[in-house]
């Protein structure tokens, strides 16, 4: 059984690399990033189609999607570790986190997220009074809404939506009034005590714009996190969102239209 899963996973990885080598980047076989673009040697690209003919990165109107597959998450917390490393997130603040749901025989739902899942889940919940009938993990991160509440309420234009659909924060203009933190229905924003500005997951914009996958997607050992451009019909995210999967978003009633989709989302998840 393990082998079949392994084959699946390596096939997808091969497909990515094939795309890069096979020239969906029209005519360009550049695996070497121009010197100075990155501080760290040569990192092969992971997202096809990020460059134009001359090899420069382009930001045309894209439609990125992030998919979290709950049926695959094992709660290892690699994603949280990678995120904290990438952005040096202060302790007690979380750009992404993983929640554990435990459901007992009487349909009571117990949720916890010790340190946001950063240390993984090393202990089971010992305080459940009834027999447990089901358990699962739910990773959470910025939903990158199409109609973001946070952008609507920012008084100074410090948080905004780019042309490629990312909601970002301008560290130099934010006054840390905290209105965006209140307005986000998904609680993904916080005030960073070091920079004294608002902060949140940005789907690793600085990586994506250089053709790399977000840090958490890159490290997930079970491919529970997926990322891609919906304009690319060969991408995994396109295929998933156009198949009859049971795919859903969190809090659809809010009207924010998240670009973060869940496969296997359970009704107990808020």
């Amino acid at each position: 059984m393990m082998d079949i899963i392994q084959k699946e996973m390596s096939r997808d990885r091969r497909a990515f690399i094939k795309n890069v080598l096979g020239g969906t980047i029209a005519g360009s076989l550049l695996l070497v990033i121009p010197a100075g673009a990155m501080d760290m040697g040569n990192i092969p690209e992971q997202i096809p189609g990020m460059r134009d003919d001359s090899g420069t990165f382009i930001s045309k109107k894209r439609k990125f999607a992030f998919i979290v597959d709950i049926t695959r998450c094992i709660g290892c917390g690699s994603c949280c570790v990678a995120d904290k490393n990438e952005y040096q997130v202060p302790d007690g603040m979380y750009r992404t986190w993983v929640e554990r749901y435990v459901i007992d025989d009487e349909d009571n739902v117990y949720v916890d997220s010790p340190n946001g899942g950063l240390d993984g889940y090393q202990q089971p919940r010992k305080d459940i009074p009834h027999p447990v009938r089901d358990t699962f993990f739910v990773p959470k991160l910025c939903n990158m809404c199409e109609h973001p509440s946070c952008v609507q309420v920012c008084p100074v234009g410090a948080t905004f939506q780019t042309e490629d659909g990312f909601v970002l924060i301008d560290d130099k203009r934010c006054v840390a009034c905290g209105y965006c933190v209140q307005a986000c229905p998904y609680s993904v924003r916080f005030i960073n005590p070091k920079t004294k500005t608002a902060d949140k997951c940005t789907w690793c914009y600085h990586r994506v714009r250089k053709g790399l996958l977000p840090a958490c997607v890159n490290v997930c050992p079970t491919q529970a996190r997926k990322f891609g451009d919906l304009n690319d019909k060969e991408s995994e995210v396109y295929k998933i969102l156009h198949q009859p999967h049971v795919v859903s978003v969190l809090k659809p009633g809010m009207g924010n239209k998240p670009s973060l989709h869940y496969v296997g989302l359970r009704r107990e998840v808020v």
Partner: peptide, 18 residues
């Protein structure tokens, strides 16, 4: 405010939706 020195931004670049 985390950055009170930037408070005047609210008068210089107020967001119409906020």
């Amino acid at each position: 405010l985390g950055h009170p020195e930037r408070a005047l931004s609210m008068m210089f670049t107020p967001s119409a939706t906020s």
